[in-house]
Amino acid sequence: MAVRNTPQRRCGTMAVHFSLLELYPGYRKCLTQLEHACVERRRSAPFARAKPYRINVVVHVLYNNEKENISDAQIKSQIAVLNRDFRATNSDRSKTPAVWRGLVSDSQVEFVLATKDPDGKKSTGITRTRSSTTSFAIDDNVIKKTKSGGKDAWPTDRYLNIWVCALSGGILGYAQFPGGPSWSDGVVILNTAFGTSGLAKAPFNKGRTATHEVGHYLNLRHIWGDTEDCSGTDFVVDTPNAEGPNYGSPTFPKVSCSNGPNGDMFMNYMDYVDDAAMFMFTKEQTQRMQVTLDGPRKTLWNATT
């Protein structure tokens, strides 16, 4: 097992592009089917759900020293943020510029720490694993393998798996889109960008990294469409076209890609701004997540766990 303890970028290694789409044929097929389903849903009349989607969560804490063995309180603070953000009960949503206030959307997704483990035994929904790895690489999924010093996922069709650890590569987390390999499904979050207390460190101490990553997990794309010009798309109509990621805490309006006068919707959870500067999903993003939850992630909230 490779132990990587330098937190800075390693050019050669990082350039190895891990392309799931090429390695795993079912992935592309699933994503294509989802695109079709989204188009269908857009055509049909909007309907209000009778009750929210409720997702069982397991948090896998990986630690190399006691300090990294984050507290239950830090974990619970993260679950609370997810519930506020995905139900649009976060108080900072009021900062949304007036022009977009009507788009702020309740995704109807709720998160609860699992009360039973995969064998049906009583559980806190938290696993804790000491590892000799001081900092997990972001390109090898070692963190998701018990054999390699990480922690195997709980059945990913029934639980949202969240791994929390020290990460190399300087990023705050990463996700897996729907339809990928089941053993690695879930999101990985840096322990200092998780929740609102304990190790959480400004400007990423409002739990929004997990909100962003779970957005990907439910098939949301970055609002700039993942190209560095204006050609990319997030497959969502009610987020303006944007050139690239926004950072820090921008001032409204910030114009790119001829999207004036209102400019980029940088306060969307799917941009790259600081935690305190993001506070909304749109209606179409909600629709996209719900299509995913009614499709490939259906077993997640139908589970009896």
């Binding site: 970028r9 050019c11 990082m14 350039a15 891990f18 972001i138 390109d139 590569g169 300087g170 990023i171 705050l172 987390g173 990463y174 996700a175 897996q176 889109f177 840096l190 200092t192 960008a193 990423f204 990294t209 962003h212 990553e213 990907h216 794309r221 970055h222 993942d226 560095e228 990621p245 950072y247 790259y272």
Partner: peptide, 27 residues
């Protein structure tokens, strides 16, 4: 730490290699 960073490598004349945040946040 950052959600993602752009890297541009100008060490080879005329050919730039770079890293940019990918769709799942990995470079």
């Amino acid at each position: 730490p950052s959600r993602g960073r752009r890297v541009i490598d100008l060490s080879t004349p005329e050919v730039m290699t770079g890293l940019a945040p990918g769709a799942d946040d990995r470079p």
